[in-house]
Design a protein around this nucleic acid. Structure first.
Length: 753
DNA sequence: CCGGGCTAGTTCTAGACAGCATGTC
DNA sequence: CTAGAACTAGCCCGG
């Protein structure tokens, strides 16, 4: 079937007008892999695994499957690996709304209501969200006729892979006619994935735009076609020379490095290169963007980023606030920012193609190995895949950097010539099975051990392993764990039944081990728990990512641990049990960060104190909110007291305020800063705000008339009109000195797209 | 007295999903 | 069992 040319017009079964639409977009003849997918029956409901390079038209393959399925009266689901990609895909699919195709999105933070999605023809969601919807018995899931799994090679990921794997297995069990389309990067064993999904494999290395791969050593860039290119460099470092070389060809570059600090340092250095390649108009635009970056957050990271961006360079990593990220990504796409130095976040995230991709660091610290470990071939190839913008760049170029002749050879062997490693299921690990076995039993996919095992037979793991018994052994351990914690009951005949608590845990979507830890901690509490105690409790569950303990931290937090020992829920591990104690301290560090946030400490003080970025605060807060909600529900389920204390701790962390501001901070348009200012002039509650003297309110809000009016309206004041009202000078002065800031900025974390 | 440039020693390490009920500037 | 870039402190040197 190779080399067959297929045109859009040849495809039957698309909704009315869609074929015409594609033609208007300039899509007539399909790319070869797309044609192969059509040959394989993608538009006739056949399952297909497409293993193709990035940017070679995977989206169209998915669209052909989903649109024809919808046209036959069906319903399609598109599973994305990242929340940020959900909105991107939604926007793409909304193109088809004019032909009567309704699109909906569901992720943890974006819209979502199970029933509301029932009327949509195409639903975009993360694999975790789909899993959650299935657990909660969303009815419309039964109506699905087509599911697309994007970046399906992520089943290899030990944290999130099993969820995708189990979710696909569940959807396929619900409907054995389900058309399954899996989109994958080029991997070593796409055939195994196709076998697993009973799909036809479309395996192609075809790219719409030429990609040259190479390794730079000294001044010579050795390319994979055997040619060499001279990269002149004076005193410049290799990376800077490559970036400058791209700039002379009016192209931009993406530099992948192995740590946040390296990304920031590299951006600072590269800014000195890019600054000489900006025209006056670009300089102006960049200055504006830099100002927006400074507005987004008042931290050192923010300033450093703004400084770099003003000169045409930027860094990108997970410590950035989400505003920062999108500003940088947009500016790069607009070709204003000429280079981004980034950690691997960018390789997996939203689309940011670039003329040249430079993989500067090919080794990364890995705690499990105890040192630097080489990146996976697949990972490096994903980075390479960002090179070249179809239709815009003449070609893409992906470059590694060698520091010796031996390394030059090694990099060619290891990454340029090498095939990616095979994708391996990570399901047979306790943490993964703990949560998925409970959910599988709780949502009725198995009510006996036999059924459970036969369900697990539908996973990729089962098709890959020849190690008999491993799954059974782990399953048995997990069942025992779940039974011991009263999430599950095992009957003599092998029957399995989730308890009320087990159902609750499954629905809350927390790791059963997190739930067990929370329950244990709450049961150990005699008095009303403090906020710190509760923050520590959730921070030490496996669902909260650990903060790194730096040198000196151990001492500092050990002291704090003894100082505040009475507040902790449950007993502290012995100081001599090294691992357990370290984890406990690390959780304490997280807990105190949350406490600082909920005590109105400024964002920049927190980032400095804990060595984190603004985006990390956001992440911790979000996770804490989620887990505290789970804690409150679990307490309710078990009739434990302290529900009110948990709720208060959650609200405090949500708004980032002390308890006296909880009432005010809940008002729309009032965040932690404004609530504090109002409080300082004697307005302590919503009731006060409804009655307060308008000039005092206006003064506390720095004379911002419009803001003040909308706040008064939001709090339900009858006469929010501020016409003719003058700001109370005393209130203004007092508020200004009290906060020491003059921009009136609300430090809000509630920034979702 | 100050600052630049060098070296040897020290420090520190990627990422990001989920509930629920509504709304930051 | 495994690394390495970037930062830091301390030093020398020249002006």
């Amino acid at each position: 079937m190779v080399g067959v040319s297929v045109e859009i017009a040849d495809i039957d079964g698309l909704p009315e007008g869609v074929a015409e639409h594609f033609r208007e977009q300039g899509i007539e003849e399909l790319y070869p892999p797309q044609g192969e997918a059509v040959e394989a029956g993608i538009s006739e409901g056949e399952s297909v695994v497409a293993s193709v390079p990035t940017a070679s038209g995977k989206t169209l393959i998915a669209e052909l499957a989903m649109l024809t399925s919808v046209a036959r009266g069906g319903k399609a689901l598109y599973i994305v690996p990242l929340r940020a990609l959900a909105s991107e895909k939604k926007a793409e699919f909304e193109e088809f709304e004019q032909y009567g195709v309704d699109v909906g999105v569901s992720t943890g933070n974006y819209d979502s209501d199970g029933d509301w999605l029932a009327s949509k023809d195409i639903v975009v969601a993360t694999s975790e969200k789909v899993d959650s919807l299935v657990r909660n018995g969303a009815q419309w899931v039964d109506d699905l006729t087509c599911v697309v799994a994007d970046e399906v090679h992520l089943v290899d990921d030990s944290h999130r892979g099993p969820t995708l794997e189990v979710t696909l297995a569940k959807l396929r069990k619900l409907n054995d006619q389900l058309q399954t389309v899996a989109l994958s990067a080029t991997v070593g064993n796409a055939d195994e994935i196709a076998d697993w999904l009973d799909a036809t494999l479309v395996d192609s290395t075809w790219r719409p735009i030429d990609l040259q791969k190479g390794v730079l050593y000294g001044q010579a860039l050795h390319l994979d076609d055997g040619s060499k290119k001279q990269i002149s460099r004076g005193n410049e470092k290799a990376t800077a020379a490559l970036v400058e070389d791209t700039l002379t060809d009016e192209g931009s570059s993406l530099v992948f490095v192995n740590s946040r600090r390296n990304a920031e340092a590299a951006a600072k250095r590269l800014a000195d290169v890019t600054r000489d390649y900006l025209d006056p108009e670009e300089r102006d635009r960049l200055r504006e963007i830099a100002a927006e970056i400074r507005d987004a957050s008042d931290t050192q990271t923010s300033d450093d980023l703004a400084d770099a961006v003003a000169k045409g360079a930027a860094f990108h990593h997970a410590g950035l606030a989400s505003d920062h990220r999108s500003l940088v990504e947009d500016a790069f796409r607009e070709r204003l920012v000429k280079v981004i130095s980034a950690t691997p976040t960018l390789a997996a995230g939203v689309n940011t193609p670039s003329r040249r991709v430079i993989v500067r660091d090919w080794r990364r610290y890995d705690g499990d190995v105890g040192g630097m470990a080489p990146l996976d071939v697949l990972e490096v190839h994903q980075m390479f895949g960002r090179a070249g913008r179809p239709g815009l760049d003449p070609y893409g170029e992906a470059v590694l950097i060698a520091n010796s002749h031996d390394e030059l050879d090694e990099l060619f062997d290891r990454y340029v010539w090498a095939d990616p490693e095979p994708v391996r299921s990570k399901l047979a690990a306790e943490p993964a099975l703990r949560t998925h076995i409970l959910a599988t039993v709780a949502s009725g996919f198995a009510d006996s051990e036999d059924e459970l095992v036969s369900f697990l037979e539908r996973t990729l793991y089962a098709t890959q392993t020849d190690e008999t018994g491993r799954l059974e052994t782990v399953t048995d351990n997990v069942l025992e764990y779940l039974e011991r914690n009263e999430f599950l009951e095992r009957e003599a005949d092998g029957g399995l039944r989730a308890t009320g608590l087990g159902h609750r845990v499954s629905q809350l979507y927390v790791d059963p081990m997190s739930a067990a830890e929370i329950i244990h901690g709450l049961r150990a509490a005699d008095d009303r728990p403090t906020a710190l105690g509760l923050y520590h409790l959730v921070a030490r569950t496996p669902d909260m990512y650990e903060l790194y303990l730096r040198s000196g931290d151990r001492e500092e937090y050990t002291e704090l641990a003894y100082e505040r020992e009475p507040e902790f829920l449950g007993s502290m591990p012995s100081e001599f049990d090294d691992n357990a104690f370290e984890d406990w301290l690390s959780a304490l560090k997280t807990a105190r960060l949350l406490e600082d946030w909920a005590s109105e400490l400024d964002e920049d003080d927190i980032t400095e104190r804990y060595g984190v970025g603004p985006g990390d605060i956001r992440g911790k807060v979000e996770t804490a909110e989620w887990l505290l909600n789970a804690a409150e529900r679990l307490a309710g389920e078990l009739d434990l007291e302290f529900g009110a204390a948990i709720r208060e701790a959650r609200k405090r962390v949500e708004y980032g305020v002390r308890d006296e501001l909880l009432d005010l901070a809940g008002v729309r348009n009032v965040g932690r800063k404004r609530a504090r200012r109002l409080y300082e002039v004697g307005i302590e509650s919503r009731a006060d705000l409804r009655e307060a003297d308008k000039s005092v309110v206006l003064g506390a809000l720095r004379g911002r008339r419009k803001t003040a009016e909308s706040i008064l309206e939001n709090v339900g004041r009858k006469d929010p009109d501020l016409e003719g009202v003058e700001a109370d000078g005393d209130a203004t002065a007092e508020a200004t000195t009290a906060t020491g800031s003059d921009d009136g900025g609300q430090q809000s974390l509630g920034d979702f797209e």
